[in-house]
Design a protein around this nucleic acid. Structure first.
Length: 422
DNA sequence: TAGCCGTCGAC
RNA sequence: GUUGUCGACGGCUA
């Protein structure tokens, strides 16, 4: 019954569009987005019948290790395109069933909810006098999910045994490292389309427990903070909730990174809170500001052969992403100071290049700008950066020019660009 | 209003 | 060697 809904044509088509549209890397079988359609045409009839009679076995997931910003490592499990399609199809159906029953103050991976709202909710609690925070950190949450617990939880709401068995097989699918294959005893694959939903299904139990105890909290994926009125009650809550998580949910609380603190010394989704001279408000955490500054430094690095046009395009990209982020900040002085800093760096950059306008003009012409306009843009001394935002120029830049320079997006220049070691 | 594409952020 | 979900913004087309 439920399986038929999952395998219905409109659902599968929607899942296909999503999976291909993501243009993600290939799984263990090496099938890319471009090859996937032909693979599907060849194998889908067989895979579908295997799914229907319960004999389908998911492929192993590809293990990729990426560094975390704070120094640690993060393991990704990349399923094949076929498995991503199946997981996406399951996810689309299960979301409809589960989403309405999730808690109001859970914000991660939820439709029509974002980090913005979570931070505002936290602020609301703090202004209501709940000015001590229990900051819970679950260590390697995705990797430590207990399969038995999760399956048991799923079987309460999903009656179709075939779907349950399929999900169980997806959870247990092997992890392929360079040479060997390891069976998966616990955890959900970080990188599977179904994983975010599964994480919310597990931690929804935590939400319901916190609500039962009448506590104020905000949760974003595995990042959970509880708001209380005193340090004493905070420590009591920390104690009992840690016990609950470890005994009932079979997860591990990172006791080193979890703590009972004040709002102004915590980092919540890139934000923080301040309380100075009776003024309470929300601000951007210094680590986020530092990250922003690092990116600006790279964009405005004068020693790099990096054209002013491209610098401005990257600044625009960066700001459109961070604009919203900073918009919530009520600490105006911090924002203005940062703005001044960026402007001064850009001005320095521009002056450096301004010495040779001719090269700038030819550069613009090479990008496909008409000579008239290139002369106009290239010769202006200041204040003309905004005029570079024409559709034609942007198209020229995002395709040929950026590829020729060796980077395709901002994230590529932040990371060291293509080191070839032999 | 719908669709397509691109970029950024949180986890 | 970089996946996934969600959100936001920008562009284009009818």
């Amino acid at each position: 019954m439920l399986l038929e809904v999952i395998l219905s044509r409109p659902n599968m088509l929607a899942a296909y569009d999503r999976v291909v549209g993501n243009k993600g890397a290939a799984g263990i079988d090496g099938v890319e987005a471009a090859d996937f359609q032909s693979q599907l045409q060849r194998d889908w009839a067989q895979v579908k019948s295997q799914l229907e009679n319960g004999s389908y076995q998911p492929n192993a997931v590809k293990r990729v290790t990426i560094p975390k910003p704070n120094g640690g490592e993060r393991h990704l499990g990349i399923p094949t395109y076929m498995d991503r399609l199946i997981q996406q199809a399951i996810s689309q159906v299960l979301v409809q069933q589960y989403e309405p029953t999730f808690s109001e103050t859970s914000y991660g991976f939820r439709n029509e909810k974002n980090a913005h709202q979570a931070a505002l909710k936290a602020k609301e609690y703090i202004n209501a006098g709940y000015s001590h925070v229990v900051d819970l950190d679950l260590s390697q949450f995705f990797d430590r999910v207990n399969h038995d617990y999760l399956m048991n939880e799923l079987s309460r709401r999903i009656t179709d045994k075939r779907v349950l068995k399929l999900i169980h097989k997806i959870l247990r699918s092997e992890i392929a490292e360079r040479t060997n294959r390891i069976p998966c005893k616990q955890g959900v694959p970080q990188g599977g389309p179904l994983s975010p939903l599964l994480s919310n299904i597990i931690l929804d139990k935590l939400d319901k427990e916190l609500e039962k105890r009448g506590l104020r909290y905000v949760r974003y994926a595995d990042d959970c903070s509880i708001y209380v009125k005193s340090k004493r009650s905070g420590e009591r809550v920390m104690e009992s909730i840690t016990r609950y998580i470890e005994k009932e949910l079979k997860l591990v609380v990172n006791t080193v990174k979890s703590s009972v603190t004040r709002p102004w010394s915590m980092k919540l989704l890139g934000f923080t809170f301040y309380h100075r001279k009776g003024e309470k408000g929300i601000s951007v955490h210094r680590k986020s500001i530092a990250a922003y500054k690092d990116k600006v430094r790279i964009i405005t690095c004068r020693s790099k052969p990096y054209s002013m046009v491209l610098r401005m395009e990257h600044m625009r990209q960066l700001n459109q992403g961070w604009g919203n982020y900073f918009k919530l900040s009520e600490a105006k002085s911090v924002f203005e100071e940062l703005d001044m800093w960026v402007r001064s760096r850009l001005r320095l950059c521009y002056w450096h290049q301004w010495k040779k306008p001719r090269t700038r003009i030819t550069e613009l012409i090479k990008l496909g700008v008409s000579p008239n306009q290139a002369y106009q843009w290239g010769n202006t001394r200041k204040g003309k950066w905004r005029s570079v935002q024409s559709p034609m120029l942007r198209r020229a830049m995002s395709n040929s020019y950026l590829k020729k320079e060796g980077f395709t997006s901002l994230t590529d220049i932040v990371k060291p660009p293509k080191t070839v070691n032999v």
